[in-house]
Protein backbone atom coordinates (compact mmCIF):
# COMPACT_ATOMS: atom_id res chain seq x y z
CA UNK A 1 0.00 0.00 0.00
CA UNK A 2 2.70 2.49 1.03
CA UNK A 3 4.57 1.61 -2.16
CA UNK A 4 1.64 2.94 -4.20
CA UNK A 5 0.89 5.97 -2.08
CA UNK A 6 4.35 7.51 -1.93
CA UNK A 7 4.85 8.12 -5.68
CA UNK A 8 1.32 9.52 -5.95
CA UNK A 9 1.90 11.90 -3.05
CA UNK A 10 5.18 13.02 -4.58
CA UNK A 11 3.47 13.89 -7.87
CA UNK A 12 0.67 15.70 -6.02
CA UNK A 13 3.25 17.71 -4.04
CA UNK A 14 5.09 18.72 -7.22
CA UNK A 15 1.84 19.77 -8.92
CA UNK A 16 0.78 21.76 -5.86
CA UNK A 17 4.15 23.49 -5.79
CA UNK A 18 3.94 24.47 -9.46
CA UNK A 19 0.38 25.68 -8.93
CA UNK A 20 1.30 27.79 -5.88
CA UNK A 21 4.22 29.35 -7.75
CA UNK A 22 2.10 30.09 -10.80
CA UNK A 23 -0.56 31.98 -8.86
CA UNK A 24 1.66 35.05 -8.32
CA UNK A 25 2.60 35.83 -11.96
CA UNK A 26 -0.84 34.83 -13.25
CA UNK A 27 -2.67 37.22 -10.91
CA UNK A 28 -0.16 40.01 -10.28
CA UNK A 29 -1.62 42.46 -12.81
CA UNK A 30 -5.13 41.96 -11.42
CA UNK A 31 -3.83 42.25 -7.86
CA UNK A 32 -1.96 45.47 -8.66
CA UNK A 33 -5.10 47.01 -10.17
CA UNK A 34 -7.10 46.03 -7.11
CA UNK A 35 -4.44 47.35 -4.71
CA UNK A 36 -4.40 50.69 -6.52
CA UNK A 37 -8.19 50.94 -6.27
CA UNK A 38 -7.81 50.27 -2.52
CA UNK A 39 -5.38 53.23 -2.26
CA UNK A 40 -2.06 51.41 -2.13
CA UNK A 41 0.86 52.91 -4.07
CA UNK A 42 1.88 50.65 -6.97
CA UNK A 43 4.71 51.01 -9.53
CA UNK A 44 4.22 51.69 -12.39
CA UNK A 45 1.17 53.69 -11.46
CA UNK A 46 -1.15 53.26 -14.46
CA UNK A 47 -2.73 50.00 -15.67
CA UNK A 48 -1.52 50.72 -19.21
CA UNK A 49 2.07 51.14 -18.05
CA UNK A 50 1.80 47.99 -15.96
CA UNK A 51 0.74 46.02 -19.02
CA UNK A 52 4.15 46.81 -20.49
CA UNK A 53 5.88 45.17 -17.51
CA UNK A 54 6.31 41.40 -17.32
CA UNK A 55 4.54 39.51 -14.57
CA UNK A 56 7.63 38.47 -12.64
CA UNK A 57 9.17 41.96 -12.83
CA UNK A 58 5.92 43.51 -11.64
CA UNK A 59 5.82 41.14 -8.68
CA UNK A 60 9.41 41.92 -7.75
CA UNK A 61 8.78 45.69 -7.88
CA UNK A 62 5.63 45.38 -5.74
CA UNK A 63 6.43 42.79 -3.05
CA UNK A 64 3.63 44.09 -0.81
CA UNK A 65 1.02 43.18 -3.43
CA UNK A 66 2.25 39.61 -3.91
CA UNK A 67 0.36 38.14 -0.95
CA UNK A 68 -2.95 39.46 -2.26
CA UNK A 69 -2.61 37.43 -5.49
CA UNK A 70 -3.79 34.44 -3.42
CA UNK A 71 -6.97 36.08 -2.17
CA UNK A 72 -8.46 37.84 -5.21
CA UNK A 73 -12.20 37.45 -5.58
CA UNK A 74 -11.94 36.93 -9.34
CA UNK A 75 -8.43 35.62 -9.99
CA UNK A 76 -7.13 34.47 -13.34
CA UNK A 77 -5.76 31.43 -11.47
CA UNK A 78 -7.20 30.82 -8.01
CA UNK A 79 -4.93 29.52 -5.25
CA UNK A 80 -5.39 25.88 -4.20
CA UNK A 81 -6.68 26.99 -0.80
CA UNK A 82 -9.35 29.08 -2.52
CA UNK A 83 -10.54 26.09 -4.56
CA UNK A 84 -10.60 23.89 -1.46
CA UNK A 85 -12.50 26.61 0.41
CA UNK A 86 -15.08 26.88 -2.38
CA UNK A 87 -15.43 23.09 -2.49
CA UNK A 88 -15.99 23.02 1.26
CA UNK A 89 -18.51 25.87 1.11
CA UNK A 90 -20.52 24.19 -1.65
CA UNK A 91 -20.51 20.64 -0.34
CA UNK A 92 -20.27 20.44 3.44
CA UNK A 93 -21.50 23.91 4.39
CA UNK A 94 -24.80 23.89 2.46
CA UNK A 95 -27.79 21.57 2.42
CA UNK A 96 -27.41 18.95 -0.38
CA UNK A 97 -30.78 20.05 -1.78
CA UNK A 98 -29.63 23.66 -2.21
CA UNK A 99 -29.02 24.96 -5.74
CA UNK A 100 -25.61 26.04 -4.43
CA UNK A 101 -24.63 22.52 -3.48
CA UNK A 102 -22.18 20.62 -5.65
CA UNK A 103 -23.64 17.41 -4.25
CA UNK A 104 -26.98 18.37 -5.83
CA UNK A 105 -25.30 19.29 -9.12
CA UNK A 106 -23.07 16.23 -8.90
CA UNK A 107 -26.05 13.90 -8.60
CA UNK A 108 -27.68 15.51 -11.66
CA UNK A 109 -24.56 14.79 -13.72
CA UNK A 110 -23.89 11.41 -12.10
CA UNK A 111 -27.38 10.05 -12.79
CA UNK A 112 -27.02 10.87 -16.50
CA UNK A 113 -23.50 9.40 -16.43
CA UNK A 114 -24.61 6.11 -14.89
CA UNK A 115 -27.63 5.72 -17.18
CA UNK A 116 -25.50 6.52 -20.25
CA UNK A 117 -22.74 4.19 -19.07
CA UNK A 118 -25.22 1.35 -18.61
CA UNK A 119 -26.63 1.92 -22.11
CA UNK A 120 -23.16 2.27 -23.63
CA UNK A 121 -21.72 -0.80 -21.92
CA UNK A 122 -24.68 -2.97 -22.88
CA UNK A 123 -24.55 -1.75 -26.46
CA UNK A 124 -20.77 -2.25 -26.52
CA UNK A 125 -20.95 -5.85 -25.29
CA UNK A 126 -23.79 -6.72 -27.69
CA UNK A 127 -21.90 -5.23 -30.63
CA UNK A 128 -18.68 -7.00 -29.63
CA UNK A 129 -20.43 -10.38 -29.47
CA UNK A 130 -21.96 -9.68 -32.88
CA UNK A 131 -18.62 -8.64 -34.34
CA UNK A 132 -16.86 -11.75 -33.02
CA UNK A 133 -19.53 -14.16 -34.24
CA UNK A 134 -20.44 -12.56 -37.55
CA UNK A 135 -17.96 -11.69 -40.22
CA UNK A 136 -20.54 -9.42 -41.82
CA UNK A 137 -20.85 -7.42 -38.62
CA UNK A 138 -17.07 -7.35 -38.24
CA UNK A 139 -16.76 -5.78 -41.67
CA UNK A 140 -19.77 -3.47 -41.41
CA UNK A 141 -19.99 -2.31 -37.79
CA UNK A 142 -16.36 -1.89 -36.77
CA UNK A 143 -15.47 0.86 -39.28
CA UNK A 144 -18.56 2.83 -38.21
CA UNK A 145 -17.73 2.41 -34.55
CA UNK A 146 -14.28 3.86 -35.23
CA UNK A 147 -15.65 6.64 -37.44
CA UNK A 148 -18.16 7.58 -34.75
CA UNK A 149 -15.32 8.50 -32.42
CA UNK A 150 -13.65 10.84 -34.91
CA UNK A 151 -16.55 13.32 -34.76
CA UNK A 152 -15.86 15.92 -32.06
CA UNK A 153 -18.42 15.36 -29.33
CA UNK A 154 -18.64 19.15 -28.84
CA UNK A 155 -20.09 19.42 -32.34
CA UNK A 156 -22.40 16.46 -31.95
CA UNK A 157 -23.73 17.12 -28.45
CA UNK A 158 -25.85 20.21 -29.33
CA UNK A 159 -27.36 18.36 -32.29
CA UNK A 160 -28.36 15.42 -30.12
CA UNK A 161 -29.86 17.74 -27.49
CA UNK A 162 -31.76 19.80 -30.06
CA UNK A 163 -33.04 16.83 -32.07
CA UNK A 164 -34.19 14.97 -28.97
CA UNK A 165 -35.66 18.19 -27.58
CA UNK A 166 -37.73 18.65 -30.73
CA UNK A 167 -39.02 15.11 -30.19
CA UNK A 168 -40.10 16.17 -26.74
CA UNK A 169 -37.34 14.26 -24.91
CA UNK A 170 -35.54 16.40 -22.36
CA UNK A 171 -33.61 16.16 -19.14
CA UNK A 172 -31.74 12.97 -18.26
CA UNK A 173 -31.99 10.96 -21.46
CA UNK A 174 -30.31 13.25 -24.03
CA UNK A 175 -27.29 13.64 -21.76
CA UNK A 176 -27.24 9.88 -21.13
CA UNK A 177 -27.24 9.29 -24.90
CA UNK A 178 -24.12 11.45 -25.23
CA UNK A 179 -22.53 9.52 -22.35
CA UNK A 180 -23.42 6.25 -24.03
CA UNK A 181 -22.00 7.50 -27.32
CA UNK A 182 -18.61 8.09 -25.68
CA UNK A 183 -18.55 5.02 -23.44
CA UNK A 184 -19.65 2.26 -25.85
CA UNK A 185 -16.49 2.53 -27.94
CA UNK A 186 -13.84 1.42 -25.44
CA UNK A 187 -16.16 -1.43 -24.44
CA UNK A 188 -16.53 -2.60 -28.07
CA UNK A 189 -12.79 -2.46 -28.72
CA UNK A 190 -11.85 -4.14 -25.43
CA UNK A 191 -14.51 -6.82 -25.64
CA UNK A 192 -13.75 -7.73 -29.27
CA UNK A 193 -10.13 -8.24 -28.24
CA UNK A 194 -11.14 -10.10 -25.09
CA UNK A 195 -13.66 -12.39 -26.78
CA UNK A 196 -11.02 -13.24 -29.38
CA UNK A 197 -8.29 -13.86 -26.78
CA UNK A 198 -8.76 -17.67 -26.46
CA UNK A 199 -6.18 -19.39 -28.68
CA UNK A 200 -6.78 -21.97 -31.42
CA UNK A 201 -6.11 -24.86 -29.06
CA UNK A 202 -8.77 -23.68 -26.61
CA UNK A 203 -11.28 -23.42 -29.44
CA UNK A 204 -10.27 -26.86 -30.81
CA UNK A 205 -10.80 -28.35 -27.35
CA UNK A 206 -14.40 -27.11 -27.38
CA UNK A 207 -14.85 -28.57 -30.87
CA UNK A 208 -13.75 -31.98 -29.59
CA UNK A 209 -16.61 -31.70 -27.05
CA UNK A 210 -18.95 -30.70 -29.86
CA UNK A 211 -19.85 -27.58 -27.83
CA UNK A 212 -22.39 -25.14 -29.26
CA UNK A 213 -21.31 -21.56 -30.09
CA UNK A 214 -23.37 -20.32 -27.13
CA UNK A 215 -21.55 -22.72 -24.79
CA UNK A 216 -18.26 -21.47 -26.21
CA UNK A 217 -19.35 -17.93 -25.44
CA UNK A 218 -20.40 -18.62 -21.84
CA UNK A 219 -17.76 -21.13 -20.82
CA UNK A 220 -14.72 -19.76 -22.63
CA UNK A 221 -15.00 -16.41 -24.40
CA UNK A 222 -16.80 -14.42 -21.69
CA UNK A 223 -14.60 -15.50 -18.77
CA UNK A 224 -11.48 -14.98 -20.92
CA UNK A 225 -12.62 -11.46 -21.83
CA UNK A 226 -13.22 -10.22 -18.27
CA UNK A 227 -9.79 -8.59 -17.75
CA UNK A 228 -10.28 -6.73 -21.04
CA UNK A 229 -13.81 -5.74 -20.02
CA UNK A 230 -12.64 -4.16 -16.78
CA UNK A 231 -9.94 -2.14 -18.53
CA UNK A 232 -12.64 -0.90 -20.92
CA UNK A 233 -15.11 -0.14 -18.15
CA UNK A 234 -12.60 2.10 -16.39
CA UNK A 235 -12.09 4.12 -19.57
CA UNK A 236 -15.80 4.00 -20.38
CA UNK A 237 -17.02 5.34 -17.04
CA UNK A 238 -14.75 8.40 -17.18
CA UNK A 239 -15.73 8.98 -20.83
CA UNK A 240 -19.38 8.76 -19.77
CA UNK A 241 -18.85 11.46 -17.14
CA UNK A 242 -17.20 13.75 -19.69
CA UNK A 243 -20.12 13.07 -22.03
CA UNK A 244 -22.70 14.05 -19.43
CA UNK A 245 -20.84 17.29 -18.64
CA UNK A 246 -20.46 18.14 -22.32
CA UNK A 247 -24.17 17.43 -22.72
CA UNK A 248 -24.92 20.11 -20.14
CA UNK A 249 -22.85 22.83 -21.79
CA UNK A 250 -24.67 23.71 -25.06
CA UNK A 251 -28.18 23.86 -23.61
CA UNK A 252 -27.57 26.25 -20.78
CA UNK A 253 -28.61 23.50 -18.38
CA UNK A 254 -29.48 24.84 -14.95
CA UNK A 255 -28.12 21.91 -13.02
CA UNK A 256 -25.09 19.64 -13.18
CA UNK A 257 -21.32 20.07 -13.13
CA UNK A 258 -21.46 21.42 -16.69
CA UNK A 259 -24.02 24.04 -15.68
CA UNK A 260 -21.82 25.18 -12.77
CA UNK A 261 -18.80 25.52 -15.05
CA UNK A 262 -20.88 27.57 -17.46
CA UNK A 263 -22.27 29.78 -14.68
CA UNK A 264 -18.79 30.44 -13.33
CA UNK A 265 -17.58 31.37 -16.78
CA UNK A 266 -20.45 33.60 -17.77
CA UNK A 267 -20.74 35.49 -14.48
CA UNK A 268 -17.02 35.92 -13.93
CA UNK A 269 -16.80 33.60 -10.93
CA UNK A 270 -13.73 31.49 -11.63
CA UNK A 271 -13.91 29.84 -8.21
CA UNK A 272 -17.27 28.29 -9.12
CA UNK A 273 -15.79 26.91 -12.33
CA UNK A 274 -12.72 25.56 -10.61
CA UNK A 275 -14.70 23.94 -7.79
CA UNK A 276 -17.00 22.24 -10.34
CA UNK A 277 -13.96 21.08 -12.30
CA UNK A 278 -12.37 19.53 -9.24
CA UNK A 279 -15.62 17.99 -8.08
CA UNK A 280 -15.98 16.35 -11.51
CA UNK A 281 -12.40 15.07 -11.38
CA UNK A 282 -12.92 13.64 -7.89
CA UNK A 283 -16.17 11.98 -9.01
CA UNK A 284 -14.38 10.39 -11.97
CA UNK A 285 -11.55 9.17 -9.72
CA UNK A 286 -14.04 7.59 -7.31
CA UNK A 287 -15.93 5.87 -10.17
CA UNK A 288 -12.72 4.49 -11.68
CA UNK A 289 -11.63 3.43 -8.18
CA UNK A 290 -14.86 1.48 -7.71
CA UNK A 291 -14.24 -0.43 -10.94
CA UNK A 292 -10.64 -1.09 -9.96
CA UNK A 293 -11.94 -2.65 -6.74
CA UNK A 294 -14.49 -4.74 -8.64
CA UNK A 295 -11.70 -5.85 -10.96
CA UNK A 296 -9.56 -7.05 -8.06
CA UNK A 297 -12.54 -8.79 -6.49
CA UNK A 298 -13.38 -10.62 -9.70
CA UNK A 299 -9.74 -11.55 -10.30
CA UNK A 300 -9.61 -13.11 -6.85
CA UNK A 301 -12.84 -15.02 -7.47
CA UNK A 302 -11.35 -16.30 -10.72
CA UNK A 303 -8.37 -17.78 -8.97
CA UNK A 304 -5.70 -15.15 -9.61
CA UNK A 305 -2.65 -15.43 -7.39
CA UNK A 306 -3.24 -13.14 -4.40
Amino acid sequence: MMRNVLPILTVVAVLLGVWLLAVVPMNIHLAADQAQRDGVAVVPDTPAARQEVGAVALAVRNPDVMASTYTLERPALPGPQQVVGELWRTTVAVRPSSKQSLIYHGWVTLSATLLGFAIGTTLGIVLAVGIVFSRTMDLSVMPWAIASQTIPILALAPMIIVIMGSLGIQGLLPKAIISAYLSFFPVVVGMVKGLRSPDAMQLDLLRTYHASPLQGLWKLRFPASLPYLFASLKIGISAALVGAIVGELPTGARAGFGARMLVGDQYGQPLVTWAALFAAAITAAVLVGIFAMLERWSARRMGAAA
Binding site: M201, Q202, T208, Y209, K219, P223, M302
Partner: peptide
Protein backbone atom coordinates in the same frame (compact mmCIF):
# COMPACT_ATOMS: atom_id res chain seq x y z
CA UNK B 1 -18.20 -37.49 -28.62
CA UNK B 2 -16.38 -40.71 -29.47
CA UNK B 3 -12.98 -39.62 -28.19
CA UNK B 4 -11.14 -37.55 -25.62
CA UNK B 5 -8.34 -35.34 -26.95
CA UNK B 6 -5.23 -34.28 -25.03
CA UNK B 7 -3.28 -31.38 -26.49
CA UNK B 8 0.41 -30.56 -26.24
CA UNK B 9 -0.31 -27.91 -23.60
CA UNK B 10 -2.62 -28.67 -20.70
CA UNK B 11 -4.77 -25.67 -21.65
CA UNK B 12 -6.62 -25.61 -18.35
CA UNK B 13 -8.89 -22.60 -17.80
CA UNK B 14 -7.04 -20.46 -15.25
CA UNK B 15 -10.34 -19.23 -13.78
CA UNK B 16 -11.56 -22.74 -12.99
CA UNK B 17 -10.30 -25.05 -10.26
CA UNK B 18 -8.89 -28.45 -11.27
CA UNK B 19 -12.27 -29.98 -10.48
CA UNK B 20 -13.99 -27.24 -12.46
CA UNK B 21 -11.74 -27.88 -15.44
CA UNK B 22 -12.44 -31.62 -15.42
CA UNK B 23 -16.13 -30.77 -15.14
CA UNK B 24 -16.04 -28.57 -18.28
CA UNK B 25 -16.81 -31.30 -20.86
CA UNK B 26 -19.41 -32.80 -18.49
CA UNK B 27 -21.23 -29.45 -18.24
CA UNK B 28 -21.14 -29.03 -22.00
Amino acid sequence: RAYGYVFQAAGLYPWRTIGGNVKLPLEI
